[in-house]
Amino acid sequence: MTLVLRLLLLLLAIWLLGKVLRSSAQKLRPATSTLPPLAERIDAILPQTQCGQCGHAGCLPYAQALARGEDSINRCPPGGEDGIRKLAALLHTDYLPFAADAPPQKPKAVALIDEATCIGCTLCIQACPVDAILGSAKQMHTVLADECTGCELCLAPCPVDCISMRPATSQPADWRWGYPVIAIKAVKPGSSS
């Protein structure tokens, strides 16, 4: 009798413990309703160059395609490998190396208009996805370097090829501490005991 009673008590305890664990797990899990939609969270990781190198019309369409599971995470060269890692962490997938057909990674650059050659055709202004080119018809155009994302979309439409990309890290303010160098002592083979 006591054995049966003990078994019953044990089962009751297990059931109670299960209840408590389940309710606490529900409380601890982040509420999915408070998070923004998945596409928005992916878009927050993407570098927002709006360059279209992923094959989509911009960063948000790529994010939406990723959220629907229609594209792979390794198609954004401006985001770099770091971006792929972040996307993999967000989407709970494995890290992927860059796609073989994706364009190569480039250092950040900004467009520069050769103002002597510019004929004022406004084609680059229409191409710029972030409105970083200033000018009007038959007037000289110029690039707002602070706003330029380096997407290179203005290069193709220019009829006189007066736009070139310049590296963005040549300013004195862009100086960074160097990577710490660790001296390595050469050890002769056989000398180590």
Binding site: Q50, G58, D131, E147, T149, R176
Partner: peptide, 20 residues
């Protein structure tokens, strides 16, 4: 610090793109 600045720049670019 650089990552923070890049994030700020990306946010600004997103805003400009959406406004465009």
């Amino acid at each position: 610090l650089l990552a923070e600045q890049q994030q700020c720049a990306a946010d600004a670019a997103r805003q400009r793109h959406r406004f465009r």
